[in-house]
Structure formats: C-alpha cells, structure tokens
C-alpha cells in the first residue's frame, strides 16, 4: 500500500463484512470499560485536569462516531460544527427558557436533528466536493444567523453564559459523557447490524445502483443526517455545559468539523471502534503536544489526515493483523 502506487490509488474503504463475532466487539467493550474505570484510578493532584481531558476525549469520540454514521451513507460532511453548535446553543437557550437540563438536552438534540433535515434535503442530490462545499456553507450560514440574532436572544458575537452541567461536579459530568458515548456506540452498532447498514453502504458505493434496487435515498439519507446530527448536538450540549461559556466563533469553528472527519479517517472509516479509538489517540496526542504547538494543534490533524490518505487508507483498523474481520465493527 505504497503511496508511490500512482496507478492504483487505494480508496479509503472498509473491508467487506464477514461474520460478526464477539471477538470483533471485544476491543470496543474493553475501550468502554477502560473509559468507565478512568475516574476511579488514583489520579493524584491533577485529577481535575485529567478528568477534563478525558471528558473532552469522550466528546471527541461522540463527534467522530456520529460523523462516521453520516459518512457511511456516502455523505462526507463539513457541517458537523453546525450541529455541535446548534446543540450547544439550543441547550443554552432552552435552559434560559426555563427547561430542566435533562429535558433541554434531548430537545436540543432533536432540534439540531430537525435542522439537519433542511440541509439534507438541499444536498440530497449533491456528491463529492459539491456536497462538502454546501455543508461548509451551511455551517457559515448558521453561524452568521446566530451571530446576527439580537444580543438579548443569543448573545451575538460575544456569546452566552451556560449554567454548569450537573452543578459542576466533574465526576458526574464525566459519567454523563461516558453514558452518551456508550449510547452513541449502541446507535452505531444498531446502524451496523440492521437494514440501515445495507441501505447506507449501498448508497455510498453506488447511489444510482442502490436506487434501481429499490433503496429510497430520500428516506435513508435524511435518516443518516438526523441520527448523526442529533448525536453531534449531544456532544455540543456536553461542551456547553462543561465550558459554561459559548460564542459563535469557537462553537461553530471549522475545527469542530475537521476533527471528527480526521479522527474517523485516522481511526478507520465506517466502523464503530475506529472513530472511538482515533479520538482516544488523537486527543491524547493533542494534550501531549499542547505545550509545543499551542496555537496550531490542528497542524496535527492536517498532517494526520494527509498521511492517512496516503499511507493508511483503512486507518488504524487496517493495521490489525487479523484481517478476518478487518474493519468489521
């Protein structure tokens, strides 16, 4: 799989699916179990700091995995920041309107899901770079709108204060984030093991052929959008509740679209384990590098993206020696 292979060019692709075994699910369960145990480790004096890093690793995992679910249907989106931001803002505004947080969270997710249907409908027949550019434009439009709403409504360019999630208890916050990641993993597995997998994969690998075989692209593309963006919005809620201050520039930053995309590709596209694993590796790398590349940690994402495309088209998942179920779950 050399990059010198000018004639071939290995596509970023998943291995064909063979049997689903518990063995394939094991690394995933192990990862979740490890993540669940993390707060109980003797973290010492830096516990708060480490928990925060771990918290945002979980958020990154939710973002990457939810992005991947959309990508499985052939829709490589640059709008994930929009749904992340809509989740964050929706949650903040719903709290302001007096909703309890436990209600505001799912409602914000559903609202973002609803907004995604608009984008999904508009981009229904677009593909490749047209789709990417349209989703990029969508993010900017949403940000511009939020930023230009009256300041009394959404805080304008300055931003909004958000009450701390769960009274600011970082262990409880971590547990919530873990729960939401586990939920995202379950959704991803459900997509993988039901008819949705067949619909998404068929649309991705040959849209017209899929249609001729009876796959309704309208229904399944929109469904992919709805699932993916609702989950991304949950990540946005976690972000808003953890940082308790959100502004349009950071919340809707292109970085929030780039990170999940890169993470999924690096970890292994169209899988459940890959994006989660990728989030773990890249977030930890980011923290380790934080001091040396303060401003531009995205450099790492750019580099990782390029190198993955050139040398690791199946991401980390492609490194596994047991090709029997390579890229399986």
């Amino acid at each position: 799989m050399s990059a010198r292979n000018v004639e071939g060019g290995t596509p970023v692709r998943a291995a064909p699916r063979r049997e689903l075994t518990l063995g394939a699910a094991l690394p995933l369960l192990a990862f979740l179990a490890l993540a669940a145990l993390f707060p109980f480790l003797p973290l010492g004096s830096r516990a708060e700091f480490l928990l925060q890093i771990a918290f945002f690793t979980l958020v990154a995992g939710i973002m990457a995995l939810s992005w991947d679910i959309l990508a499985r249907s052939g829709q490589v989106s640059l709008a994930h920041a929009a749904f992340y931001g809509l989740g964050a803002y929706g949650y903040a505004l719903l709290l302001k309107a007096g909703l309890p947080w436990a209600l505001a969270m799912p409602v914000a997710a559903l609202l973002a899901g609803g907004a995604s249907l608009i984008l999904g409908a508009v981009t229904m027949r677009l593909s490749g770079m047209y789709f990417a550019i349209a989703t990029l434009a969508f993010t900017e439009v949403v940000r511009t709108i939020i930023q230009n709403l009256p300041e009394s409504v959404a805080g304008g360019a300055t931003g909004l204060l958000v009450p701390a999630l769960l009274g600011g208890n970082s262990r409880a916050q971590y547990a919530l984030a873990w729960g939401l990641l586990a939920f995202t993993v379950l959704v991803s597995l459900a997509v993988r093991l039901t008819r949705l997998h067949f619909a998404f994969a068929a649309i991705r690998q040959g849209e017209e052929t899929a249609r001729v075989l009876g796959v309704s692209i309208v229904r399944f593309k929109l469904l992919a959008f709805f699932i993916s963006s609702s989950l991304a919005a949950l990540a946005g809620v976690l972000y808003a509740g953890k940082t308790f201050f959100i502004n349009p520039l950071e919340t809707f930053s292109l970085a929030n679209s780039i990170a999940p995309l890169t993470t999924s590709i690096f970890g292994g596209l169209y899988t459940t384990l890959g994006p989660v694993l990728g989030a773990g590796v890249l977030r930890v790398a980011e923290e380790l590098l934080h001091n040396s590349v303060k401003n531009g940690y995205l450099v790492v994402y750019g580099l990782v993206l390029m190198l993955s495309i050139l040398w690791l088209p199946r991401g980390l998942m492609g490194l596994r020696r047991n090709k029997k179920h390579g890229g399986d779950l």
Partner: peptide
C-alpha cells in the same frame, strides 16, 4: 457491484 460488500450482501 457494490465493491466493498460481500457477494452475499
């Protein structure tokens, strides 16, 4: 064919 699927899929 859908290239990344198995024949059965």
């Amino acid at each position: 064919p859908f290239p990344e699927m198995t024949v059965h899929e």
